[in-house]
């Protein structure tokens, strides 16, 4: 049974990942534990004395957890669709090497994206399991949260792939993280509700995929009301992913077929 050409480039990426999977899993596990201890349990005790961001009387830790789950998915998606893509085109040139096989640029794009989504899914599942251990959510909420987080990461991955595949070196990538990913992480309703933001910039948060991801995550994990219907947020994330792919795929072709 032959693997379709569009998926044949997944296996080598998994094989490369296998070399470092232990370290990767440990850090994927420690990251939520440390964040939840410091921000949720530590900082949270102060917050809980003075405010109730959920408006539902749940702890800051519980409110923060699903938000962080979505934010972590964004960061994983962004990380996996930036430096490794640069390496494929330029540093290790693995994409260029693969172009000499029956695979083509579209196959490389699809396989790369599939692997990114698998990675986001994996990181999100570990995160969600930690949330269950902290008593933030039930197992069902964790499973659904893993799915919405994966969708969030997937929505970030294609536009960032499009961005990265235009770059000649990685200075653009440090700008992307400094001026894109980090501000989104801080101001998309993960740590405090966007109702705290000045009225003028609030629509900006509605336009970012992360805020929708955070909303969905809290909805499935905590049963919180969403600002927009859930399907609208899901649709919005899907649109980001599709539009990103529409830009990224021709860019892959242009770069690999010369």
């Amino acid at each position: 049974m032959a693997i379709p050409t569009a998926l044949r480039f997944v296996e080598p990426q998994a094989l490369a990942y296998r070399r470092t999977w232990r370290a990767s899993v440990v850090s994927n596990f420690l990251n939520p534990v440390l964040y939840l201890l410091a921000m949720g349990a530590g900082l949270g005790t102060l917050v809980d004395e003075s405010a109730d961001p959920s408006g539902m009387g749940i702890s800051y830790l519980a409110w923060l957890g699903p938000g962080l789950l979505a934010a972590q998915a964004m960061q994983t998606g962004a990380g996996e669709s930036s430096f490794p893509i640069m390496a494929g085109f330029k540093w290790r040139k693995s994409y260029v090497a693969v172009m000499n096989t029956p695979l083509d640029a579209t196959d490389i794009f699809v396989s790369t994206y599939v692997w990114i989504v698998v990675r986001v899914l994996q990181v999100s599942a570990i995160y969600a399991a930690v949330l269950v251990a902290f008593g933030v959510t039930e197992p069902l909420g964790a499973v659904l949260g893993t799915l919405t987080a994966t969708l969030t990461g997937a929505a970030f991955a294609t536009p960032i792939m499009a961005f990265t595949s235009r770059l000649e070196d990685d200075t653009g990538l440090s700008h992307l993280f400094r001026f894109g990913v980090v501000p989104l992480f801080l101001f998309s309703g993960t740590f405090f509700p966007i109702s705290q933001l000045p009225e003028l910039v609030r629509p900006l948060a509605y336009a970012t995929p992360l805020w929708h991801g955070v909303e969905l995550s809290r909805s499935v994990a905590l049963g919180m009301e969403t600002t927009f219907p859930w399907w609208a947020s899901v649709g919005f994330l899907v649109i980001w992913a599709v539009v990103g792919a529409i830009f990224a795929l021709p860019q892959f072709r242009r770069r690999l077929v010369v």
Binding site: I3, R8, F9, T101, P102, L103
Partner: peptide
């Protein structure tokens, strides 16, 4: 091995 897999 990986290269062989590209050729199915």
């Amino acid at each position: 091995t990986i290269y062989g897999r590209y050729f199915s």
